[in-house]
Design a binder for these strands. Structure first.
Length: 720
DNA sequence: TGCCATTCGTTTTTT
DNA sequence: ACGAATGGCA
């Protein structure tokens, strides 16, 4: 799986040797030595946490069980480095996987050091760091600094052009396989060698041209944001040394979710000095499907013989009964590191398991129970979370919550940036920032319709192909006059002029680099939307309701862009360059509103709630086991099935351990599948929780609509 | 031959 | 409930 044998990616050991050489040169030039005497650490931590914070004698792995205070360790350690150890914030980086986690960590770090000490500190996702590195080093990688980042849908479009099929599932499979290869540092050559199934062979054939197409568009996909920086640092001694002396201490959160590529990047940046702290929990590894491998945890111990391993085993989050159930479930998985979580927060209430008739009944019942519990426990809405395996389960829940007028927020789910209207607007912005971005060009020039259709684009595409120039540049070529009707040509040129004007106003110099005389992003955006008449287009193509919702989304987007540009004093072009990574979570700045949280189990990781309702805990849903692929190799199929059950079990573990005080687990005896009701079995994980006599099986039927209304009124009256 | 409507089927998680 | 595929109609 690792790329040790790939010709153009040297094996770890040789890399480390090279790094050693590079590093000794660096140190000889007088880089500051690490502090000798360790100052004390501020209190409020247990012995293990304190040890983790203070360990600076080399690489450090913190095995942090759920709720054991890992974020605390990271933030305290940042504070320790900056306050007490003389580190400059510019030389410290903390990496997370999600924007949400990065944002939260940035928030918590504020309490740990003075603002001026924090200036220049890097707290970002792997992907954001990758973008930053890539923008700065663009020339060395053969990209212009204004390269585009393609969302997965755009990347899928590229795959579609490469493979002759309309089968969306197959295209996704190819895209996915390529993504996994990139994450595992497998280059096209090796991919061709190791492809074993028909699907993989198809992907291997497309892999090389997929990369070539991206390059032609001056674009990268998400995986490239890690892969290309790693590749660059691997090959370019000068760049590597520069980044090594720049990021002198790294902290990596959720280390169990790193993939081979991310591991390599960390390894290259930290170099042989290996000044880093990795924090993770093998029991919470739930991203194997996107290339993460817990082998990275094991590899750490072999790659770094002087690795200090510290376990955090005291849980500060959950009541004993919840923790015990979680421990019993995860016990069924093989252990990489032995650790046992304990808590002194008291026994707590028994865990409640409730079988339900169907998904509406389940949703209704959970909603009613939350209403009642809020009243009984004098709790707030935001003390409750409803967690589920897959996004579509949110539908029924949302409906039930709306019926009871319970405020809620859905986190996770499909990204804001996947919405068509957002991608439409962004296509224009991408094109303005990078006019070699052909997918953006095609999308922009065809939405809204402006009399340029398939036929015209084909002519343009052919012409651009012959000359090997971008589509946008082709617009202005004189050779087109013979091939296109005057009318079409006029449309194209008008569009081209329009984009040119926007580029100029947005602060993009003729050759692509940013210039200083840019107009405010907000004004340009307004003019852009007005010029393309986007609102009108929405109302023409959708019904009143749909158009209104979509237009609101566009306003959210532009409003956010405008604010962001002002706050960070960026030109539109600069803004667009890192926008692909930003989640709308960042937009929801309103500090935690009092609402019930709906979330997938994946999106819930790292969060905690007093009262958790884990719904749809059924065989086939959690664990969700797809079909066995592995064409005709029963041994392999069985092996992968076992691995998948183990990952689903960790997902269950993550779900249970989100709960602080109470946990409800529900499952449906029947569930609608298509139009038929299908009988369902409770998840094996319910049994594995080992609730024994303690389990309460509550079979109260769902309330009638009338009773519910009565209860709601009663609650409203009493609750005020 | 192309488009519209109906019917059937359905693996999920995210940067 | 959504998306794709197929069948029927114009």
């Amino acid at each position: 799986m690792t790329a040790s044998s790939t010709p153009d990616v040297p094996p770890v050991s040789s890399t480390v040797r090279k790094l050693d050489r590079a590093q000794s040169q660096l140190d000889a030039k007088g880089a500051p030595a690490e502090p000798f005497v360790l100052p004390p650490v501020a209190g409020g931590m247990n012995d293990a946490q304190r040890e983790a914070v203070r360990h600076l004698d080399g690489p450090c792995l913190v095995l942090a069980g759920a709720g054991s205070g890992k974020t605390r360790v990271i933030t305290q350690k940042i504070g320790y480095l900056l306050r007490d150890c003389g580190y400059n914030a510019r030389n410290v980086a903390a990496l997370t996987f999600t924007n949400k986690a990065a944002k939260e960590m940035a928030e918590r770090v504020k309490s740990v050091a003075a603002p001026n000490q924090l200036k220049g500190l890097t707290i970002s996702t792997f992907h954001s760091l990758g973008v930053r590195l890539l923008r700065e080093e663009a020339k060395k990688v053969g990209l212009k600094p204004a390269f585009s980042i393609l969302a997965s849908d755009d990347a899928l479009g590229i795959v579609q052009d490469l493979i002759a099929t309309t089968d969306k599932g197959r295209l996704r499979a190819v895209q996915n396989t390529i993504s996994l290869w990139k994450n595992a540092l497998v280059e096209p050559d090796e991919a061709e060698r190791i492809a074993s199934t028909e699907g993989e062979r198809e992907a291997a054939r497309a892999y090389r041209s997929y990369n070539a197409t991206l390059r032609a568009y001056q674009s990268v996909d998400f995986d490239d944001l890690i892969r290309l920086p790693a590749q660059l640092l691997e090959r370019d001694d000068e760049a590597r040394e520069r980044w090594q002396s720049r990021l002198r201490y790294m902290l990596v959160d959720e280390y169990q979710d790193t993939n081979a590529c991310q591991y390599r990047l960390v390894q290259l940046i930290t170099g042989p000095r290996a000044m880093f702290t990795a924090v993770g929990d093998d029991d919470q590894a739930i991203y194997a499907w996107r290339g993460a491998t817990i082998e990275n945890l094991a590899k750490l111990t072999t790659d770094y013989p002087n690795l200090k391993v510290i376990k955090l085993e005291q849980n500060y989050r959950s009541v004993q009964r919840i923790l015990a159930a979680a421990n019993r479930v995860i016990e069924k998985n093989p252990k990489l590191f032995d650790k046992k979580l304990w808590s002194d927060l008291g026994a707590g209430d028994p865990i409640v398991v409730v079988p339900m008739d169907g998904e509406e009944a389940e949703a209704e019942s959970v909603a009613v129970r939350i209403s009642a519990a809020r009243f009984e426990k004098k709790a707030q809405w935001k003390d409750f979370a409803i967690l589920y395996r897959s996004n579509h389960q949110a539908r029924a829940m949302e409906q039930a919550l709306r019926n009871l007028k319970i405020p809620y927020m859905v986190s996770g789910g499909q990204s804001f940036f996947d919405k068509a209207e957002v991608r439409d607007v962004l296509a224009y912005l991408r094109l303005i920032a990078n006019d070699e971005d052909d997918p953006a060009m095609i999308r922009a020039i065809t939405t809204p319709k402006r009399g340029v259709g398939q036929a015209t684009l084909e002519v343009l595409g052919n012409y651009a192909g012959e000359r090997e120039i971008p589509l946008f540049a082709a617009i202005f070529e004189t050779g087109l006059e013979q091939r296109l009707a005057a009318r079409q040509l006029a449309q194209l040129r008008e569009f081209g002029e329009f984009i040119h004007r926007m580029q100029w106003r947005a602060g993009r110099g003729a050759s692509g680099e940013a210039i200083t005389s840019a107009e405010p992003a907000g004004e340009i955006l307004d003019d852009l939307l007005r010029a393309i008449n986007y609102e009108r287009y929405l109302y023409d193509t959708f019904d009143e309701r749909g158009a209104q919702a979509r237009w609101q989304t566009v306003l959210d987007l532009t409003g956010w862009l405008r604010r962001k540009a002002e706050e960070d004093n960026m030109t539109l072009v600069e803004l667009v360059q890192h926008i692909a990574l930003i989640t709308m979570l960042e937009k929801n700045d309103e500090e935690d509103p009092d609402v019930v949280r709906l979330s997938t189990l994946h999106a819930s990781k790292g969060l905690e709630y007093p009262h958790v309702y884990l719904v749809g805990v059924e065989e086939g849903l959690l664990p969700h086991l797809g079909k066995d692929d592995e064409e005709g190799d029963p041994a392999k199929a069985a092996e992968s099935l076992v691995a998948r059950v183990q990952e689903e079990r960790r997902l269950m573990y993550v779900g249970i351990t989100r709960a602080q005080r109470s946990l409800h687990v529900t499952w449906c005896k029947k569930r609608k599948r298509g139009r038929e009701d299908v009988a369902r079995e409770p998840s094996r994980f319910i049994e594995e929780m080992g609730l024994g006599g303690e389990k309460i099986v509550d079979t109260t039927p769902a309330m009638s609509a009338k009773d519910r209304l009565g209860m709601l009124k009663a609650l409203l009256n009493k609750g005020g």
